[in-house]
């Protein structure tokens, strides 16, 4: 049986970790390589790195950050943020990513998903969907939440999986950074229409929130602030999940 995964997320800009609320008001939250190594030691099941740089120099710096993180860890690494071309995806994989996250560019041109999946395999394409509540459903937002697309998030999830996405990183724009828990209705809705694994993101600050996320249909949970700010460690959190009956991988000491 696959265990449920706990995935710290590092938003990086110009070689540093940053964190904000609803994708804005970024503040410094530490050195990415140090944090990555610490999270692996605590029992993180994977890492996600999102490059939130706004400039070409920032993008170049992110490749070096990915290389440095790769040298420091031996757990899966997903890298996303501003991936628009297959060449960029390949550069990230060569720098040490195991999976590539696509978001805004895939909304604008869904063929990007198919291109990466065909060349590098569906297991290497993570479709990041940022979803904001709308009147009766959820709407896809792009470009760090500044662009409301009018596209229904459920329809987009189905389109993205049909195009070749192997996994969905589902972020609630409304709950991101607020610490009040995931948008559970969103997780239920998306996991009800696609059969790929769902990484829940945006809003969790306690183990209870994460248990709720798993029960709603998530296969993995992603969080940033609670780990960066030292509210809890990955290890403490997984102990709490285990106590709540969630199957998780605990760090083992070999004889």
């Amino acid at each position: 049986m696959l265990t449920k995964r706990v995935i710290p997320c590092l938003d990086i800009r110009d070689g540093r970790i940053v964190k904000g609320t609803s994708f804005a008001n970024l503040r410094d939250a530490g050195d990415p390589v140090e944090r990555a190594a610490a999270y692996e030691a605590q029992g993180a099941d994977e890492l996600v790195v999102l490059d939130v740089s706004a400039t070409p120099d920032g993008r170049e710096a992110a490749l070096h950050t990915v290389e440095a993180i790769r040298r420091a860890i031996s757990i899966p690494l997903t890298v996303g943020g501003g991936v628009r071309t297959i060449a960029h995806a390949r550069a990230l994989l060569e720098a040490g990513a195991d999976k590539v996250g696509v978001n805004s560019a895939a909304v604008e041109r869904p063929e990007l998903i198919t291109e990466i999946a065909q060349r590098m395999g569906a297991q290497c394409v993570v479709l990041a969907i940022d979803a904001a509540r709308s009147a009766s459903s959820w709407e896809v937002v792009t470009r760090s939440g500044t662009n409301r697309t009018g596209i229904d998030a459920l329809e987009w999830a189905c389109t993205g999986v049909a195009a070749g996405a192997g996994e969905i990183l589902l972020t609630s724009f409304d709950e991101d950074g607020r610490g009040n828990g995931y948008d559970l209705q969103l997780i239920r809705a998306i996991s009800g229409v696609v059969n790929v694994s769902i990484i829940a993101s945006g809003g969790a600050s306690t183990a209870t929130h994460m248990v709720d996320g798993f029960e709603a249909g998530a296969d993995a949970v992603l969080a940033a602030s609670i780990f960066h700010d030292g509210v809890t460690s990955v290890g403490e959190l997984k102990e709490q999940l285990r106590a709540a009956g969630v199957p998780v991988r605990m760090m083992e000491v070999e004889p």
Partner: peptide, 8 residues
Amino acid sequence: RPRFGWNR
């Protein structure tokens, strides 16, 4: 479909 994760 891809099955991701840690397994015993």
